[in-house]
């Protein structure tokens, strides 16, 4: 059963409203996105900056509201649950944020950071909350836990902070964990620890994870399936194992080719895309990728490709008429 079902979701941000509060132009951050995540899977979302992946994460955890479409977690509409029982909603989905430095109140200890959610939700007393925080720190291998409970954020390394953020996200036993670039701030030599921790937590708790990253190797390593976003739209959904070798969409292929620069992971010529990512304020007509695509034809310029589905796989490109 799918735990998260996103259907035709839109989120537009107004650009510079006029004096009457009306906006003439919009950033099409998330522009009709659909996908579903099965219970217990790690689902990846990749794309370059401005493709809408972070907005998508914020919509799912309810930090912002979507304009149109539907996001269902365990069959319940997010906008509804948020309105009717926000506490339950918070216990359903939690997030590991991108920036392990700014995610902490610099004037509060780790103890405060970890016990607040427990005190707000668990009906726990102060002491129980602290002992629960203790367990959580042990779960993310920050030991001796007592030592870390009394530390201020700046006394911890970036990797340790990232562990605390994971512990906090887990503190309310959510069904869905949204991890927004969980390793992008880490050095290569320590990144593996957090990757392994996420894997371990996922396995032990059977938690569903939505992993958002610009780092293809991380997504490939951790996820079972991957959605590729370009300018607010999902252009391809594929099995992670197919990412480096069997992707269909020309954008995915270019991304793979650019990302593994130097390591020669992908076979064949390196694909160098022409031009820049167009502005999400006035996205191109037809297929949004056509100005940069070397296969683009007249159809691509005029008509938006209909997504083709088959076996949990999706591609939105005029090059294919069936899967």
């Amino acid at each position: 059963m799918s735990l998260l079902k996103v259907e035709d979701v839109f989120k537009l941000f107004p650009v510079r409203p006029d004096i009457f509060g009306r906006a003439k132009k919009f950033v099409h951050a998330v522009d009709g996105v659909s996908f579903s995540v099965e219970e217990g899977e790690i689902f990846g979302v990749i794309g370059e900056s401005g493709c809408g992946k972070t907005t998508l994460a914020r919509l799912i955890v309810g930090l912002i509201d979507y304009d149109r479409g539907s996001i269902k977690i365990k069959g319940e509409e997010v906008s509804e649950v948020k309105r009717l029982d926000v506490e339950r909603f918070r216990r359903t989905v939690q997030m590991v944020p991108q920036d392990p430095v700014m995610a902490f109140n610099p004037r509060k200890t780790i103890k405060h950071f970890l016990t607040r959610p427990l005190l707000l939700h668990g009906g726990l007393g102060r002491e129980e909350a602290v002992s629960r925080a203790h367990q959580l720190l042990e779960e993310v291998s920050l030991t001796p836990a007592d030592f870390f409970l009394d530390r201020y954020p700046h006394e911890l390394s970036v990797g340790q902070r990232q562990r605390v953020l994971i512990a906090r996200a887990l503190s309310l036993n959510p069904d869905l964990l949204v991890a927004d670039e969980p390793v992008s701030y880490l050095d290569v030599s320590v990144r593996g620890q957090i990757i392994n921790l996420l894997k371990e937590v996922h396995k032990k708790r059977r938690i569903t994870v939505l992993l958002i990253s610009h780092d293809l190797s991380v997504v490939y390593h951790l996820c079972s399936r991957i959605a590729v976003m370009y300018l607010g739209k999902v252009v391809e959904i594929l099995d992670a194992r197919d990412l480096f070798s069997k992707s269909l969409h020309p954008y995915t292929q270019a991304l793979v080719s650019s990302f593994s620069v130097g390591f020669g992971i992908s076979r064949g010529e390196r694909i160098v895309l022409k031009g820049e990512v167009p502005s999400p304020i006035e996205p191109p007509s037809g297929c949004r990728f056509h100005p940069r695509c070397s296969f683009a034809t007249d159809v691509c310029r005029k008509l938006e490709p209909k997504p083709l589905f088959s076996d949990g796989r999706l591609v939105a490109c005029h090059l294919y008429d069936r899967l």
């Binding site: 930090l63 918070r90 939690q94 997030m95 991108q98 700014m102 995610a103 959610p117 906090r168 309310l172």
Partner: peptide, 10 residues
């Protein structure tokens, strides 16, 4: 972000 994090746990 840390303010957002507080909102996120209610």
């Amino acid at each position: 972000t840390f303010v957002e994090m507080s909102k996120l746990v209610g």
